[in-house]
């Protein structure tokens, strides 16, 4: 188990190193000059004074060789100092942490809502496969998977903000402003979680131990909760972890449309505004989180199911 954890940690570090190198190199791979791009993002003018370009290049330390810039950045990053944003002049570490917190609130709320709907719905569908509810669940989840967020979000705003006037159109300034983005963000994971819950429960309900529990006179509800859910929930947790890793990186569409200052919008705007320190720290944080959550999930499997340890060489 410890050997497995150490191996995964080393892989994770190697991945982060590779991502940080890529994040550093990508802005320089095109034909353009990142400093000219940065000035253009700050002033709405195509004609740029060459002296201003060189002045800013020196001020930002971008006149040094790329390898020197990278090693300097890496050294500071290892001490938790990601520098200062080229645009806002605020600490990159604090900016990314703030955005991450907002995306985390959004992601966790959306996944809790998705889970709250998906679990009972999936279980109910599994209880009577081929029934009316099961048919409804199939159509409902297919529809949710097919409808993109860039369509759902404007429609949600039109219905709940413009026509009904129940919710604000955008912003991140009141609990009410959370409702619409969370609801829309939850729909897709809700669909997948419902389908996985249904499939998993169907498998579990056919298991001998369920039959045994029922034959001992245990009520169906108790059987489902005590035996069915405990065993059937593992694939749901796996899927949940994947969604969490994805959503923590922010949902660009939702965050831009609803003007939410989360990770997705942060990285999107860093690309548009050529804010290299923010972009580099943002990308590294997103990848680090994804790898961390996946590693934690793998370790959790091993803890739950010792049989897996030998197949992973963890013994």
């Amino acid at each position: 188990m410890v050997r497995f954890a150490v191996r995964r940690a080393l892989i994770m570090l190697a991945m982060l190193l590779a991502v940080s190198m890529l994040a550093f190199a990508v802005p320089y791979l095109g034909d353009g000059d990142p400093v000219r791009d940065l000035i253009r993002a700050r002033v709405s003018d195509q004609a740029i004074d060459p002296a201003a370009v060189e002045g800013l290049r020196v001020q930002l330390g971008l006149d040094r060789p790329l390898s020197v810039q990278y090693l300097d950045w890496l050294g500071r990053a290892l001490t938790g100092d990601f520098g200062v944003s080229f645009t806002s002049r605020l600490s990159v570490g604090r900016t990314v942490a703030g955005a991450l917190m907002i995306s985390a609130i959004l992601a966790v709320s959306a996944l809790l809502l998705a889970l709250a709907v998906a679990l009972p719905l999936g279980m109910a569908a599994a209880l009577r496969p081929g029934g009316l509810l099961d048919g409804f669940v199939t159509v409902f989840t297919q529809a949710l998977v097919a409808l993109p967020e860039y369509w759902l979000a404007p429609v949600g705003i039109l219905v709940f903000a413009l026509y009904l006037g129940w919710l604000p159109s955008a912003g991140w300034n009141s609990p009410a402003s959370l409702v619409l983005p969370v609801a829309i963000l939850s729909l897709r994971p809700m669909a997948y979680l419902t389908r996985v819950t249904r499939a998993s429960m169907l498998d579990v309900l056919d298991s001998p131990y369920i039959l045994a529990a029922r034959s001992r006179g245990l009520a169906m509800g108790q059987t489902l909760i005590r035996h069915g859910l405990r065993n059937g929930i593992i694939p749901v947790i796996t899927l949940l972890a994947l969604w969490l890793a994805g959503l923590l990186g922010g949902s660009v569409v939702i965050e831009v449309i609803f003007a939410i200052p989360g990770m997705g919008r942060l990285v999107y705007e860093a690309v548009i505004e050529k804010d290299l320190p923010l972009l580099q720290a943002g990308l590294v944080s997103i990848v680090a989180l994804a790898v961390l959550i996946n590693t934690a999930t793998d370790l959790l499997y091993l803890a739950i199911n010792p049989a897996l340890r030998s197949s992973h060489g963890a013994n």
Binding site: A116, P120, A124, L127, S174, L224
Partner: peptide
């Protein structure tokens, strides 16, 4: 055969959702 009253659970969930929306609407107003 005893079953979980999933219909009731779903109704409760729907009511809770409506409540959240109503509260949000009041706060927004």
């Amino acid at each position: 055969m005893q079953t979980i009253d999933l219909g009731r659970a779903l109704r409760r969930l729907a009511m809770a959702g409506t409540g959240i929306l109503a509260l949000a609407a009041v706060a927004e107003r």
